[in-house]
Amino acid sequence: MSHSEKATASVGEDAALVKAYQRGEREAFDTLFERHQRNVYRLCYRFVNNHEDASDLVQEVFIKAYRGILRFRGDSSFSTWLYRIAVNTCLSYRSLRRPAMEEFHDDKGANANDVIERIEKDERSRQLREAVSRLPERQRITLILKVYHDLKHADVAHVMGTTIGTAKANLFHALTNLKRLLEKGQGGAP
């Protein structure tokens, strides 16, 4: 099955689960949560750049989805609808900005070169996440949706409630600002 066929099938399964929930099957919502919680978590994590806030945001996103799912009519796919809730939740979230959680790796049994390579990669990732978290909010969200969630420009525009042209312009500025931030060693706002 091709990627697009899988995506279409997934959209169809989501729609069936939404209908099942609307008929009164609470378990259907649990299944929707299981299917989408990782994507929502990753989106939130990239936005806030720490696990605790991302965790809280995931809960908030799904509670909002639970409250609104009876009104969901399927004008867009469930995942696009959910992304929209997640983006709005992220944009309205005011965090205490807890420090990012340090990653833990069990390096027992790995040789020194592997460990050094992993540390360097982790450090690059950390710097990049820091840089992403410094982007202006709308640029940040656009970048996350496009780069990490592989949404089409039209879907990004729909989720952001804007035009395709604006979404593309936001992404363009996000990418150039990201490059600039990394060149500067993340110093200063873009």
Binding site: Y41, H51, E103, R124, S125, A174, L175, T176, K179
Partner: peptide
């Protein structure tokens, strides 16, 4: 060129995966 570099940098990054117990 800046946008292309930004794209390549952005793609090449991971986020820490929480423990399976977390889910």
């Amino acid at each position: 060129r800046h946008a292309r570099d930004g794209w390549r940098l952005a793609v090449d990054t991971d986020i820490p995966e929480p423990s399976p117990l977390y889910w």
